[in-house]
């Protein structure tokens, strides 16, 4: 099972190491981890996607809460939430295949960031399933390079 958790943490050096150390010390597997600034200047927000059963998730949440540098933990397990990942992907594009790739990009609302004689670079935002769908469609053309930013998540509604 995949779980998405967000942690509001002190925005200072060493905190990321403390959090990643927490995971490695207990052999919890991180699938994705992102960090960024928030509306509060000295608070960073991490979004962590972990794989494991409910028991592991419970321990992860408890251990995060235990760290003095972690201000708040949101477990999205029982919540309606929005999640997005960002991907840049550079695909082989010959004269013959270029228009097909542009068509895929437009169906999935990807931005075309760069075009060269034999490549196209797309930018795509969406849920993981959407990104994976596009990757499947682009693979036959030959993916030269790909990078994903990792998942960010937020609760729906007023919460």
């Amino acid at each position: 099972m995949k779980h998405t958790i967000a942690a509001m943490v002190e925005n200072k050096p060493g905190v990321l190491a403390k959090i990643s150390g927490l995971f490695s010390a207990r052999a919890f597997n991180i699938m994705s981890l992102t960090v960024g600034e928030t509306e509060v200047h000295d608070v960073s927000r991490m979004t962590i996607v972990v794989k494991g059963d409910d028991k592991i998730l419970e321990q992860v949440v408890k251990h995060l809460n235990k760290l003095p540098d972690v201000i708040k933990v949101i477990d999205f397990k029982n919540e309606e939430f929005i999640e997005r990942d960002l991907m840049l992907v550079k695909v082989n594009a010959s004269k013959a295949s270029r228009s097909e790739i542009i068509e895929i990009a437009s169906i999935f609302r990807a931005n075309i960031l760069d075009v060269s004689a034999d490549t196209i670079t797309l930018e795509l935002t969406g849920r993981e399933t959407k990104l994976e769908g596009v990757i499947r469609l682009l693979r036959p053309y030959g993916i030269k390079e790909m990078v994903r930013a990792g998942v960010v998540a937020m609760s729906r509604g007023r919460k």
């Binding site: 050096p13 060493g14 190491a17 403390k18 150390g21 010390a25 003095p68 540098d69």
Partner: peptide, 14 residues
């Protein structure tokens, strides 16, 4: 030192 002692302390500071 803070890197080495992170897993063996409750908290550490530089």
């Amino acid at each position: 030192t803070t890197g080495i002692t992170r897993p063996v302390t409750k908290q550490n500071y530089l």
